[in-house]
Simulated scan of single mutants.
Amino acid sequence: MAKQDRAVRTRQQLIRSAAEAFDQGGFALSSLTGIARGAGVSSGALHFHFRSKQALGAAVETAAVGLLQDILAPRPGDRPAPLGNLVDTSHVLARRLTEDVVLRAGFGLAADVTWRQDVALWQVWGGWVRSTLTQARSEGALAPDVPLEDVISTVTAAVAGTQALARLDVEWSPRYAVAQFWNLMLPRISAAMVPLDRACQTAPHE
């Protein structure tokens, strides 16, 4: 059992080290030697768990999808209003993207031209945004003149894109950007305005 636990920990360390490497330098420029060193294991141990960098990248992406799905999953017994849920979840996602390198690397791989895989985290996020806004439209929570497809694409891109901008400017705050986005967006799309303090969950200097 102890040997199995060590194997699980080693695999997790390699996934995290790979995520850090992909996040900092992209998939193509990351080396297996550097990833093994970052995880504190030998190259042989890395190849025991992952036969190639492609397999390691897929593991990072799979782990990131799991983290994202956990953020998006409904809580037992919780039936929040769809627009309020969308705002709250976008704040959680922005915070987690700042804090969790595996989740951040997953979104980064989706935008990396050197990476080719079937799963793209922004598509998972976009699908959830679509279902949540479709529910809001069916419940009459969206303003009647708001084009649904326009809102879906805008929300998907705005929230997922804040982290990409943070890569280019270390002073850029994804959490503050998301709060400001909702301050502008909610009055336009909401049939019955969501309380403004829900949009402004993040202080300017947080």
Rank of each mutant, 00 (worst) to 15 (best):
M1G: 02
Q4D: 06
D5C: 12
R6Q: 11
R9D: 15
Q13R: 14
Q13I: 13
R16A: 09
E20R: 07
A21N: 07
A21F: 12
A21M: 08
F22Q: 04
D23E: 07
Q24L: 14
G26D: 03
G26S: 05
T33W: 04
T33D: 08
G34R: 10
G34A: 10
I35V: 14
I35P: 03
A36Y: 01
A39Q: 04
G40I: 15
V41K: 05
V41E: 07
V41W: 03
V41D: 04
H47T: 10
F48G: 07
H49D: 04
F50A: 02
R51W: 05
K53E: 05
A55Q: 04
L56F: 03
A59Q: 04
A59V: 11
V60D: 01
E61I: 14
E61G: 04
A64S: 06
A64K: 01
A64I: 11
A64M: 05
G66K: 11
G66N: 05
L67P: 02
L67H: 12
L68F: 03
Q69G: 01
D70I: 07
D70R: 13
I71C: 06
I71N: 06
L72K: 00
L72W: 00
A73M: 09
R75W: 07
D78F: 12
P80H: 11
A81P: 03
G84F: 06
G84H: 01
V87H: 04
V87E: 02
D88C: 12
D88R: 13
S90F: 10
S90Q: 02
H91A: 11
V92M: 09
A94K: 03
A94S: 08
R96D: 13
R96T: 11
L97T: 08
T98D: 12
D100Y: 08
D100W: 08
D100P: 09
A105I: 11
A105V: 08
G106S: 02
G108L: 06
L109T: 00
A110R: 01
A111M: 04
A111S: 06
V113T: 13
T114A: 15
T114I: 04
D118Q: 08
D118M: 05
D118F: 01
D118H: 13
W122P: 00
W122R: 10
W125F: 14
W125H: 09
R130D: 07
S131Q: 14
T134S: 14
Q135I: 09
A136V: 07
R137S: 14
E139G: 07
E139A: 13
L142E: 05
L142S: 01
A143K: 09
P144F: 06
P144G: 06
V146I: 15
V146T: 15
L148F: 05
L148D: 01
L148Y: 04
S153F: 08
T156Y: 00
T156A: 04
A157E: 03
A157G: 02
A158G: 10
A158M: 10
G161P: 03
G161C: 06
T162Y: 10
Q163M: 11
A166P: 02
R167D: 01
R167S: 00
V170G: 05
V170N: 09
E171S: 12
S173D: 13
S173K: 13
R175F: 12
Y176D: 14
A179R: 09
F181Q: 09
F181E: 07
F181D: 04
F181R: 13
W182S: 03
N183C: 13
L184R: 10
R188Y: 12
R188V: 15
I189R: 06
S190K: 02
A192H: 15
P195Y: 05
R198Q: 07
C200W: 10
C200D: 10
Q201D: 09
T202A: 15
